[in-house]
């Protein structure tokens, strides 16, 4: 776990800027600093601290799956018996093809995304998971995508409430 770190208004402004408009320039930190009225060194140090404290996962390209990979993927919902959620989640998370795995408050209480080289491989992994978890196929929902309408994972920062319980001046 990451500890308590208090963010000031400038930190929140930096988070918003490096999410929305990260400059693709040789002097990135000068560009960020100029936009916010701070020095390049201060900009870099703040971004470093925000990443070390876990507010930023990474600064990286977000790739379009259809253009960089030919893998098949699906979303699976599972009805896990009460009391077995963590155990079953651990079995599922161990597969490298599982990228997201969440508890959700519903009769189907565990949902994960799975990818594999093709649909046959997907089905094989699914069967193996059913065997390993001893949960029957009737407790699994296999819901592959038919149409994509939107993927745009960006947030509007709210310094007043987000992040920590203190230190937001």
């Amino acid at each position: 776990m990451t500890g308590q770190v208090s963010l000031d208004r400038m930190d929140w402004r930096i988070l918003q800027l490096v999410q929305d408009e990260f400059p693709l320039l040789p002097l990135v930190w000068d560009a960020v600093g100029t936009r916010l009225g701070i020095s390049a060194q201060d900009a870099l140090l703040r971004v470093r601290r925000l990443q070390e404290a876990g507010f930023i996962r990474s600064i990286a390209p977000v790739l379009e799956s259809a253009l960089v990979t030919s893998r098949s993927s699906t979303l699976i919902g599972v009805r896990v018996p009460a009391g077995r959620l963590r155990e079953v989640a651990a079995i599922i998370s161990a597969y490298p093809g599982v990228s997201h795995n969440y508890e959700r408050h519903h009769e189907f209480n565990l949902w994960f995304t799975l990818s594999a080289p093709d649909t046959e491989a997907l089905d094989a992994i699914l069967l193996e998971i059913q065997k390993k978890t001893r949960i029957g196929a009737d407790a699994f929902l296999d819901l592959p995508i038919r149409r994509k309408f939107k993927i745009d994972v960006r947030y509007t920062m709210d310094p007043g409430r987000g992040g920590t319980h203190h230190g937001c001046d």
Partner: peptide
């Protein structure tokens, strides 16, 4: 379109 966007991936839970 190979890169949809380039920038910070935010930890949403950490950011409130």
């Amino acid at each position: 379109g190979v890169i949809r966007r380039f920038g910070a991936r935010i930890n949403n839970r950490r950011c409130g």
